[in-house]
C-alpha cells in the first residue's frame, strides 16, 4: 500500500513542482497523440462518410477492412512502420526513424481505422431517408454531408474520443518507432515502461496518474461539448 501512496504523493509533487522533464514528456505525448488524432480525423471522417453514403461495388470489402483495422495491434503497426522507415527501408531516406514524426505516423495508422469505422457507424445509424429528405429540400452533396455530420455529431465526437484514447494510451508502436529517446521521443507510456523496468515504481505511478488525468481531462472536455443540450 505504501508503494501506491508514495507514488501518488510523488505524482502530486511532480505535478506541482513543474519538473521540466515531466513537462516535456507530457507535452510531447499530448502533441504527438493530438496531431495523430487530427490527421486520422482528416482521413477517417471523409473515408467513413464515403463508406456510409457511397454506392460502389467494393464497399463491403473496404468496410470489412476498416473493421479489422480498428483492432490493429499497436506492435504490429510499430513493426510495419519501422520496416518502412528503417534506414534501408522504402522511406529510409526521409530519416524519420526514432523521431516524433515516426510516432505520429504510427499512431495515425492506429487511430485512422478507429475514426473511420466509428464515423461509418455514426452515419449508418441515422435514418436512411434523411439523405433523401435533404436532397428533396434542395441540398447539394456537400450540404447533405455537412447536415448529416451535424446530425451525427454526438457519435462523431465519440469517434474522436476513441481515436485519441487509442493512441494516447498506446505503448508498443511508440517504443518501436520512437525508441524512447530521452528528451527526444520519450512519451508518457514509454517513460512508464522504462521507470517500471528500473523498479522506480513511484515515478511510474506518478507518470501513470498524469497520463490518466490527461486522458480524463480531454474526454471531460469532449463529453462536455457532446452533452451540451440546446435549450428545450
Amino acid at each position: 500500500m505504501s508503494l501506491i501512496w508514495e507514488g501518488l504523493v510523488h505524482a502530486v509533487q511532480l505535478l506541482f513542482s513543474a519538473d521540466p522533464e515531466v513537462l516535456s514528456i507530457t507535452g510531447l505525448s499530448l502533441r504527438v497523440s493530438g496531431i495523430a488524432t487530427l490527421v486520422s480525423l482528416l482521413v477517417g471522417l471523409p473515408l467513413g462518410t464515403l463508406l456510409a453514403l457511397g454506392h460502389f461495388p467494393t464497399r463491403r470489402f473496404w468496410i470489412s477492412l476498416v473493421n479489422t483495422g480498428m483492432a490493429l495491434p499497436p506492435v504490429v503497426v510499430g513493426l510495419a512502420v519501422s520496416i518502412f522507415l528503417w534506414r534501408s527501408g522504402p522511406l529510409g531516406d526521409l530519416r524519420l526513424m526514432y523521431t516524433p514524426t515516426a510516432i505520429i505516423i504510427a499512431q495515425t495508422v492506429i487511430a485512422a481505422p478507429v475514426v473511420t469505422g466509428l464515423t461509418l457507424a455514426a452515419l449508418q445509424q441515422l435514418n436512411p431517408r434523411l439523405e433523401l429528405q435533404l436532397k428533396g429540400l434542395g441540398a447539394s452533396r456537400l450540404q447533405i454531408v455537412w447536415a448529416l455530420w451535424r446530425e451525427a455529431r454526438l457519435p462523431l465526437l465519440a469517434a474522436v474520443m476513441a481515436g485519441f484514447g487509442s493512441v494516447i494510451s498506446e505503448v508498443g508502436a511508440s517504443m518501436m518507432v520512437g525508441g524512447n529517446l530521452r528528451g527526444q521521443t520519450r512519451v508518457l507510456t514509454t517513460a512508464i515502461v522504462l521507470e517500471n523496468s528500473k523498479g522506480e515504481f513511484a515515478v511510474a505511478i506518478a507518470l501513470s496518474v498524469i497520463l490518466m488525468l490527461l486522458a480524463y481531462l480531454i474526454n471531460l472536455l469532449l463529453t462536455w461539448v457532446q452533452q451540451r443540450r440546446l435549450r428545450e
Partner: peptide, 29 residues
C-alpha cells in the same frame, strides 16, 4: 430540386431547433 420541395411520411426533422429546421431549405439555397 431547388425549385421544388418535398414532404415525406415521416417528418425527418434535424436534431436542432424548430426554427432552424424551417429555415434549412432556405439556407441550402
Amino acid at each position: 430540386r431547388r425549385r421544388t420541395s418535398l414532404v415525406l411520411q415521416e417528418p425527418l426533422l434535424m436534431d436542432t431547433s424548430v426554427y432552424d429546421n424551417a429555415a434549412s431549405g432556405l439556407r441550402f439555397r
